[in-house]
Amino acid sequence: MDPPVADPRPARFEAVYRETYGLITAYAARRCDSPQDAADVVAETFTIAWRRLDDLPPGPEALLWLYGVARNVLANHRRGEARRRARDTELDAEMADLYAARPDGGVELGAIAEAFRALPGDDRELLALVAWEGLDRAEVARVLGVSRNAVRVRLHRARRRLARALATAGVPTTESRLVPTERSL
């Protein structure tokens, strides 16, 4: 038998998978109401990544690229167009663990959550990428596929809207000067 030809692709994919699985999982869990949906998003995201492995950028950029894919997958799910992947229920179970640990923060957190949910989806995503995934402006720009300047402007607006909503809800987290002034990130 001829010596088998080693395909470097599975190894590369697996390395990226190991590196990013937890972060993509967290991303999905933070945005989906049910563990099953989150599991679908994770599975679909990595399946797309495998099919488009040649497009997957190297190094830390891979994570941002995957966030972008996950975001699109999520959008498709929300539109109800995604097919449900056949998969092991084990993934659902692991997701459920993440959901079990959901913080429950009482009245004040409820008010913040309400204000946040009332924002437009694009605002929420921008704010979440910064506050939850801990991305900086340049990284957010990568995920969303827009310019840094666009991120700066949109983020500023999103924050202003959130601050207003919080002020309206009377959330006392921000002392008196809640509305951000014109400042860069």
Binding site: L98, A101, R102, P103, I112, W132, V171, T173, T174
Partner: peptide, 9 residues
């Protein structure tokens, strides 16, 4: 900081 506790993970 106000948003962070909302994150499920």
């Amino acid at each position: 900081a106000a948003l962070r506790p909302l994150a499920r993970v």
